[in-house]
Design a protein around this nucleic acid. Structure first.
Length: 285
DNA sequence: GCGACAG
DNA sequence: ATCTTGTCGC
């Protein structure tokens, strides 16, 4: 390609700087070549794990039932979350154990960590799951009697581009039933925050109201759930692992006081508090 | 081609 | 995720 087509009027762009940060159109935002490479590996990993996914109530979950009570044998729920310090890699990984049904904090397992992997939509688990596993192992080693019967995760389960969000990924790795609870809708399979979608949300009038998140393919990805009479915005519940969408939804509602169900809400509050100077801390509960 | 994108 | 004060309501 020569360059002497002089007289092409204007003096156009010579603007080709070092784009070490390539703008990839691989279905994501700006990715470096390094990150683009990880995706290939990570997608394979998600595919392998997905083959082990269980989307119905496991024997453990079914054993909680007694008579008309769906959660009679449930006494221990965990909530996990990771908070960060603004422009750093420093973060606090948190797993809180709550009693059920009273929802009191029974135990806290936390650790200040350095995040190494980047956040890439669709690959959140590769950034956070190892730190969550560490919290669980810590509890198993030091307080085995507090091991959670089910875990609520801040993020999606199967409501994910490849059907394997953080809640599912974590559930498969640890073997404990997990539920995905996201604050924002991950638009997959045609799901979108359209006017029609907002219309459905406006029809959720009270705590416990919900509607199915069914994609263009007909697949049921999860449910939009109003978790409080006060909170207009719903949360998006999806199967993580070893629990059905119906049971997961009922449990999320049973654990909700504010918009975010208590397990993940406490995990979020406490992990953030941990990253703040002691002097500026207030009682979160 | 353009816009969107859990935490 | 995080950046941030006031403000409306019980």
């Amino acid at each position: 390609m020569a360059s002497k087509d002089v007289d092409d009027d204007e003096d156009f762009d010579e603007l080709e700087e070092d784009d070490s940060e390539i703008v990839a159109g691989m279905g994501s935002l700006t990715l470096s070549p390094d990150e683009a490479g990880k995706r290939v590996t990570w997608e394979k990993e998600q595919s392998k794990l997905k083959s082990q996914l269980i989307t119905v109530d496991s024997p453990d979950v079914r054993s909680w039932r007694k008579g008309n009570s769906l959660f009679f044998g449930l006494h221990n729920i965990a909530g996990v979350d990771i908070s960060f310090v603004k422009g750093t890699q420093k973060a606090c990984a948190m797993m809180v154990i709550l009693t059920f049904p009273d929802l009191r904090v029974a135990h806290i397992s936390k650790e200040i960590v350095e995040m190494t992997e980047p956040y890439i939509p669709g690959f959140l688990a590769f950034r956070e799951v190892s730190f969550l596993m560490d919290r669980l192992e810590e509890i198993k080693g030091n307080n085995p009697h507090l091991m959670p019967q089910v875990i609520m995760v801040d993020g999606n389960g199967i409501l994910h581009p490849r059907g394997l969000g953080l809640a599912s990924h974590f559930g498969i790795l640890c073997g404990i039933p997990c539920i995905g609870v996201a604050k924002n809708l991950f638009c997959v399979d045609g799901l979108q925050k359209s006017a029609d979608f907002k219309e459905k949300i406006s029809k959720l009038k009270k705590k416990g109201d919900s509607f199915d998140l069914k994609g263009d393919s007909g697949k049921l990805w999860g449910k939009a759930v109003r978790t409080s009479d006060d909170a207009v915005n719903p949360v998006y519940v999806s199967i993580g692992h070893k629990i059905s969408l119906e049971t997961a939804t009922k449990l999320v509602i049973a654990c909700s006081v504010k918009r975010i169900p208590e397990p993940t809400r406490k995990a979020d509050l406490l992990s953030r508090q941990e990253l703040r100077p002691k002097s500026n801390r207030k009682k979160q509960y």
